[in-house]
Design a protein around this nucleic acid. Structure first.
Length: 959
RNA sequence: GGGCACGUAGCUCAGCGGGAGAGCACUACCUUGACAUGGUAGGGGUCACAGGUUCGAUCCCUGUCGUGCCCA
């Protein structure tokens, strides 16, 4: 029995359990051993994360694809899991320690701290996974993976060692984006450019050999800067080589104010003559552009900050080199001052000595760490790098050749732009939570990269014996005695960027590097579904790693979906406070309604601005379906064994078969083309506007009539079409459809494993037997219902005659209702209908639909006549006149107005078509079908107008 | 400054070379035996603006204005 009211909360939890118990989503089910695999890896959410609208959209789309392919008989693996989110997770746990007033990370030490992080992960790390389950994600939960798992960590180590051996990973001293709060390097992509209202400070740098005076412009050069505090690390001044103002100064030297260092004036095109003073100070150790200028001119790099962003001058050899002794006092005075305080103090000092020309307000972009929120400091450090440029080449080629395609295609441009300008990828992070880099250092700093410490020691001993640092004898002793070699080499303390492990996700989750059958079966994956914002973070890196280590692309299709934005079109973010919580929407309207909304709005290439009213509307759609199924149940509609829809005899039943086939084709083709909104729209219209509005209404007289063959067939057909609807809708609304599937009949299997209506590979009888055998062999696999295999070829079934007949009924009823409403005839008034001058076809059809038409159009009687009775309202349906004779009820003036409006409409049609057909160019140049179509339109409009005028004439003669 | 989108009914959005569509909102009527989380009928748009291509442009091209995003 179906409950009276649809309550999503009541069924969603229960259906989740049903699927789980049946292990419905397990990859490699025995009954699908021979089936084609279909694989999607989930973009792993942060283990610290919770479900936001972007996740909801992303996973809804993946789930639609997975459920669709699962029903099409594929062996689906949707690989779930989370990533360890190095910085975010470490921050979460550190914050927790602080809140509980427990010892901090450094006090407890690395090992203890990592234990705490794991403990946190075990307790709270499952949040987002449970939220994905609430959304209905049909992942193979038994295969859930975590980037810090043993197996995935093994893959990380192997990849690092092999890339290092191949020279594709190396250590280098370069500028990195340094987060002075978190004390780690971060990636370009974790840096947010924020517009900040700052200043341009114009500074006077005295020229060497002149006596500096603020009054004498020939005694100095003015440089403009947004970061005056970095001037302590300046090693040059740059001007544009063609800037006439400065030609005479190129090659001269200036004395750096406050510091006293002599630095050159160089010519470099980076300097923009139109910006500031046209001269810039060059600080290679604290600015990415200056770093490049420094390289071009061979300038020294002087870092003046420490890793916390405080001035570091005392004992700073780079800084103090070649400086006069007096400057040591200055160094002591400024040493240790935080960078923004230093800015104030330095500007003040410059001003006091006349070196500050002026200050100009200037709005510019300043890099901020997206986790810490503090201003990022370009900082010169030793880090590990991946040679991304080399690895990118095959990844670029794979997209060029079409081995991997983007949907929509225009994202390929973005991909190429990024890949072709890719920079070395800094992969080391100064954190504790993550994969510790498998590199060890010998006593002299020599690095040994190996999969294990034992192996590294072996290499080290060999190396140092060869270098005669230790004797062969010492080496032998160390190799044999653990105690003797303790502390000989020390491991790199840093960990790898989280994205380094995520890049391996499509194959590490399958078990690589172990030789397991899953790798062979499920790699390459079929499609990756993601938002464009992580094309760079993730897609590109998976492409690089997949091609290098597997020799094959990671996925053949990348579907890039929209971003979910708020009602103003702004990106949803916590700091803006404009987030809509998907879980709140699920609580209010159900997961099915939310999923359907997201699918219906997921038009390609367009962002989604979500509003709750849409979700409500689709919840109502679910209710509609629920009630339609209740109707079927109340009328004892059931599918008899062996029923064949294609062989139905009743016109109405053939019509719904025709419509079902059309809807099936539409939905199937739309999902295949990733047009989720079209698919959702097609099933929505079919359920509501075809099945509910017309089929069930037209079937009512038959269902409530006397027992007959027609009644039996209609009962079967109502149930059959309902089942087809449940299947077509299942990928979008899995909970309600599975629940109704369970309740509406005695089923042998779950809907989620039932075959898709459009399945091309309808199994033969022999195959069914084999499948059943396989199913029964494994008690966990529910056998498939034999009745599901009754062939109905949705790809080809058509019945145009049924379509024409039911179409006439629909048009007639609609026209009568429209006239009644316009004439203000109360619904309680039953009117007679007269079909005027009916054709033979109509004469045959009408009696077959008397009951239905009477009921739906609220008629007392249907009759035929050659002329419309006096004083009747008349309407034209498919070229024939129907009259509603009701003397006294029909307001003649109103009817005259109504007919006048209809005629005007017909006139407008005729005029528009005439204009076209009157154009000789149109007739000559337009496609023949188009011209023919227009001619037909014209004829129809003229005929319609004639009938209407006739009706108006009759009215005039009466009144 | 460079790149990518987008401006269609009051709102949120589809459509995209030959008759302007949906959901919500709105108006009127309906306690009709599945459903008021509903039914029936209806109102509402110079498809941002200006040029061009075409027999024909909401749709293709160019420009202008406006909005958003990404990158520098």
């Amino acid at each position: 029995m179906i409950e009276k009211n649809y309550q999503p909360a009541d069924i969603e939890g229960r259906m989740s359990l049903v699927w789980e118990d049946a292990r419905a989503f397990s990859a490699g089910r025995p009954d699908r051993r021979e089936a084609d695999p279909f694989t999607i890896v989930i973009p792993p959410p942060n283990v610290t994360g919770s479900l936001h609208m972007g996740h909801a959209l992303n996973n809804t789309l993946q789930d639609i694809l997975c459920r669709f392919e699962r029903m099409r008989g594929r062996d689906v693996l949707w690989q779930p899991g989370t990533d360890h989110a190095g910085i975010a997770t470490q921050m979460v746990v550190e914050r927790q320690l602080m809140e509980r007033q427990q010892p901090g990370r450094r006090e407890m030490g690395r090992e203890k701290f990592l234990e705490r992080v794991w403990q946190w992960k075990d307790e709270s790390g499952g949040t987002i996974i449970n939220q994905l389950k609430r959304l209905g994600a049909s992942c193979d939960w038994s295969r859930e993976r975590f980037t810090m798992d043993e197996g995935l960590s093994k893959a990380v180590v192997k990849v690092f060692v092999e890339l290092h051996r191949a020279g594709l990973i190396y250590k280098d001293k370069r500028l990195v984006n340094w987060d002075p709060k978190l004390l780690t390097a971060i990636s370009d992509l974790e840096v947010q450019q924020v517009e900040v209202k700052g200043n341009l400070w114009y500074l006077r740098y005295p020229l060497e050999g002149k006596t500096f005076s603020p009054e004498d412009p020939t005694s100095f050069i003015v440089v403009a800067t947004t970061r005056p505090e970095t001037m302590l690390g300046d090693t040059a001044v740059a001007v544009h080589p063609e800037d006439e103002r400065y030609q005479h100064l190129i090659g001269k030297r200036v004395i750096l104010p406050l510091v006293g260092r002599e630095i050159p004036i160089v010519a470099d095109t980076y300097s923009d003559p139109d910006k500031g003073s046209g001269a810039v100070k060059v600080t290679p150790a604290h600015d990415f552009n200056d770093f490049e200028i420094g390289r071009r001119h061979g300038l020294p790099q002087i870092s003046v900050f420490d890793k916390e962003g405080c001035l570091n001058l005392v004992d700073n050899e780079d800084y103090l080199r070649e400086l006069p002794e007096a400057s040591e006092e200055f160094a002591r005075e400024f040493h240790g001052i935080e960078r923004f305080a230093a800015r104030k103090k330095i500007v003040e000092r410059l001003k006091n000595f006349g070196f500050l020309e002026r200050i100009e307000p200037n709005t510019h972009m300043v890099p901020h760490g997206d986790r810490s929120g503090v201003v990022i400091e370009p900082f010169l450090t030793d880090q590990w790098y991946v040679d991304a440029k080399t690895l990118a080449q095959p990844a670029i080629a794979a997209v060029r050749s079409g081995a991997t395609t983007f949907v929509p295609k225009n994202w390929e441009k973005t991909y190429f732009d990024w890949m072709e300008n890719i920079q070395p990828w800094c992969i080391s992070r100064q954190l504790w939570w993550g994969h510790q880099i498998p590199a060890w250092y010998g006593p002299d700093g020599k690095v040994f990269v190996a999969e294990t410490e034992e192996e590294a020691i072996g290499h080290a001993i060999g190396y140092y014996v060869e270098q005669e640092v230790i004797t062969p004898e010492q080496g032998r002793e160390m190799a044999l005695d653990r105690n003797k070699r303790a502390g000989f080499i020390t491991r790199d303390e840093d960990v790898l960027d989280t994205w380094f492990s995520s890049a391996l996700w499509p194959f590490s989750t399958l078990g690589w590097p172990d030789d397991v059958p899953e790798v062979k079966r499920y790699y390459p994956t079929n499609v990756l579904v993601t938002g464009f914002d992580i094309i760079f973070f993730w897609v590109a890196r998976m492409m690089m790693m997949g091609l290098h280590f597997m020799g094959e692309v990671s996925f053949s299709t990348v579907y890039i979906h929209a971003l979910v934005r708020d009602e103003k079109g702004a990106k949803m973010s916590k700091s803006k406070g404009n987030v809509i919580d998907p879980l709140a929407l699920i609580d209010e309207y159900g997961a099915d309604a939310l999923r359907f909304t997201l699918a219906a709005m997921a038009a390609q290439g367009r962002d989604i601005k979500l509003s709750a009213s849409r979700v409500e509307g689709y919840r109502n759609f679910a209710t509609k379906l629920w009630n339609a199924c209740r109707f079927a149940e109340m009328n004892d509609c059931a599918l008899p064994e062996g029923f064949e829809a294609a062989k139905a005899e009743e016109t109405l039943n053939r019509w719904i078969a025709h419509e079902t086939a059309a809807a099936t084709r539409e939905v199937t083709e739309a999902i295949e083309a990733y047009r989720f909104n079209d698919a959702a729209g097609a099933i929505y219209r079919f359920v509501w506007n075809v099945y509910c509005d017309w089929y069930l209404e037209l079937a009512k007289p038959v269902l409530t009539g006397p027992d007959s063959a027609a009644k039996a067939e209609t009962r079967a057909m109502v149930a059959w079409a309902r089942d087809e609807i449940l299947k077509l809708l299942h990928p979008f609304m899995p909970f309600i459809t599975e629940a109704l599937w369970e309740t509406t009949a005695d089923r042998d299997g779950l809907l989620t494993l039932a075959p898709w209506p459009h399945r091309v590979d309808v199994p033969t009888v022999a195959e069914i037997a084999a499948l059943s055998a396989a199913s029964f062999a494994d008690p966990l696999v529910p056998p498939m219902a034999p009745s599901l295999f009754v062939p109905f070829d949705a790809s080809s079934f058509k019945d145009e005659a049924a379509e024409a007949e039911i179409g006439w009924v629909v048009d007639l009823v609609t026209a009568i209702r429209s006239v009644r409403a316009e004439m203000n005839i109360p619904p309680a008034t039953l009117m007679p209908l007269v079909l005027v001058g009916a054709s033979a076809e109509t004469g045959e059809r009408a009696p077959r639909w008397t009951d239905v038409i009477k009921r739906l159009a609220r008629l007392s009687d249907i009759s035929f006549a050659d002329r419309a009775p006096e004083g009747s309202a008349q309407l034209v349906v498919r070229g024939e006149v129907a009259a509603l004779p009701l003397k006294g009820v029909v307001d003649l003036a109103a009817e005259r107005t109504r007919l006048g409006k209809e005629i005007a409409k017909a006139d407008a049609d005729i005029e528009r078509v005439d204009k076209k057909l009157g154009n000789p160019n149109f007739v000559a140049k337009a496609a023949e079908e188009v011209v023919e179509e227009e001619r037909e339109k014209r004829e129809a409009a003229i005929a319609r107008k004639a009938k209407l005028e006739e009706a108006l004439g009759r009215l005039a003669s009466v009144g």
